[in-house]
């Protein structure tokens, strides 16, 4: 950037831009900071919380997740105050204005690039949403999902069991967010097992790792083709990372109860 435009950006010039010359870009900066931070943290937490050591350190890391961006933003506000004061002194303003040394052509080109990028982004986003809508809609044959507690849902096919649960507000554990790595969404297929597609290698690996019996599948991977399927969620929806170690024991207990659940229906 400095080479192309012969521009030296300092914190002072940037802050002047944000707080004095172009407040809209300052607002944009704040919002983008927040979005980027939240998005990054979501990814990190979903990845980290299924690690063995995470429960021990989580309590100390969570406060940082809030404190770091907040302190940064407060620092920006505080620096902004100083910059506003300094810019009231007329001799500082020309220095700050150096930011805008760009030829009109270059500025227009830059803006055109930005606009093209934004439109491409929105178009891609629309395509993704449209594709998802089609996927949800296109399931012709109806699917009936029966949960172990007696809840019955009639839905269109095309979604995984986990997605069916979520879209119908049925609490369903899923610590990794549906990436077949944690195994917390595991369900025992009580009925309709034969119609299901076989497990992929990765799903099978996870199932093996958690010592699942052959009737157990990962709800985030199974897309039932239709008909009726009866399932039993093996872990409670409030499962926490620290519970994972005890998951095996819980599974064994549920295995004893399962026949009773079948009988009581």
């Amino acid at each position: 950037m400095p080479i192309m435009t012969d521009l030296r950006q300092t914190y002072f010039s940037i802050l002047t831009l944000f707080w004095v010359l172009d407040l809209a870009s300052g607002l944009q900066q704040v919002i983008v900071t927040m979005i980027a931070w939240i998005h990054g943290c979501m990814g990190l937490v979903i990845w980290l919380r299924i690690q063995n050591w995470w429960p021990r350190v989580a309590g100390f890391i969570y406060p940082l997740v809030v404190a770091i961006p907040l302190l940064a933003l407060l620092g920006m506000v505080e620096a902004g105050k100083e910059v506003i004061e300094l810019n009231k002194n007329p001799k500082f303003t020309p220095a700050a204005l150096k930011i805008l040394i760009l030829s009109e052509d270059a500025l227009q080109t830059l803006l055109a690039i930005v606009r093209a990028g934004l439109w491409t982004y929105f178009a891609l986003l629309a395509i993704v949403l449209l594709a998802r809508y089609v996927r949800v809609r296109q399931g012709r044959s109806a699917l009936r999902v029966i949960y172990a507690d007696g809840t019955e849902l009639d839905v269109a096919t095309g979604l995984t069991i986990l997605e069916v649960s979520r879209m119908n507000n049925i609490p369903h554990a899923s610590l990794c967010g549906g990436k077949e790595s944690c195994g917390t969404c595991r369900v025992r297929i009580l009925d309709g097992r034969d119609a299901l597609p076989t497990a992929s290698a990765l799903e099978q690996a996870t199932l093996d790792r958690i010592d699942a019996d052959p009737e157990t599948r990962l709800a985030c991977q199974v897309i039932p083709p239709g008909g009726t399927i009866a399932i039993d969620k093996l872990l409670p929806a409030y499962v926490e990372p620290k519970d994972l170690r005890r998951a095996k024991a819980a599974q064994a207990r549920r295995a004893d109860n399962a026949p009773q659940a079948m009988a009581s229906k």
């Binding site: 407040l23 300052g26 704040v30 919002i31 961006p69 907040l70």
Partner: peptide, 13 residues
């Protein structure tokens, strides 16, 4: 705009 920045920050907090 300045107030909007402040509002967004305190809501974020």
């Amino acid at each position: 705009l300045r107030s909007a920045i402040h509002i967004i920050i305190f809501l974020f907090g």
